[in-house]
């Protein structure tokens, strides 16, 4: 069987904690990262809330899984697209989100930004280009 690299897009549209989708998506991404594919993450609508910094779940007795997003770089997930319009509608800016990076081994582990802000039109093109879209 020939190895075909496919372009997988994980589409995240739900806020964390209120439903299980955000955590489920993250787990699938981490598991799927074992299968050398071209992986991108898209955060649209309430999905952008998953990336807010300073999450503290001590008061609600749930596992705080926001630190796990910082591990995505280790799992070779380097393309995280966040929709600008979704941030705007929620009164958020890039500064409200975690600073996610990946390390470039070829450049002495230089840290590079994983998050890229894109417009709704650009996001539509990213979705069009994907071979497979996993929706959460």
């Amino acid at each position: 069987m020939s190895e075909t690299i496919k372009n997988f897009l994980y589409l995240n549209r739900k806020a964390p904690y209120g439903t299980i989708y955000a955590w489920e998506s993250l787990e699938v991404v981490l598991i799927g990262a074992a299968f050398d594919q071209d992986v991108s993450l898209a955060f649209v609508d309430d999905g952008v809330y998953q990336l807010t910094k300073g999450q503290d779940t001590a008061g609600i007795g749930m596992k705080n899984f926001s630190p796990t997003y910082a591990a995505l770089g280790d799992y070779e997930v380097k393309k995280i697209f966040v929709e600008q319009e979704s941030l705007d509608e929620r009164g958020l800016t890039l500064d409200d989100l975690q600073h996610l990076v990946w390390e470039d081994e070829d450049e002495d582990y230089a840290e590079k930004d994983s998050i890229k802000l894109v417009s709704r039109a650009e996001m539509a093109a990213i979705m069009d280009d994907a071979d497979v879209v996993f929706s959460f």
Binding site: P16, Y17, Q55, D56, G59, I60, E89, G91, D96
Partner: peptide, 29 residues
């Protein structure tokens, strides 16, 4: 600063609004 802020502010004229702190903190606010 959200797209629904105006509607929420308007509601304050007739009802009392409360928000649960632990749920805010969990979400980073």
């Amino acid at each position: 600063g959200t797209a629904v802020e105006d509607r929420v502010k308007q509601a304050l004229d007739s009802v009392k609004l409360f928000v649960l702190g632990p749920d805010l903190l969990a979400r980073g606010f």
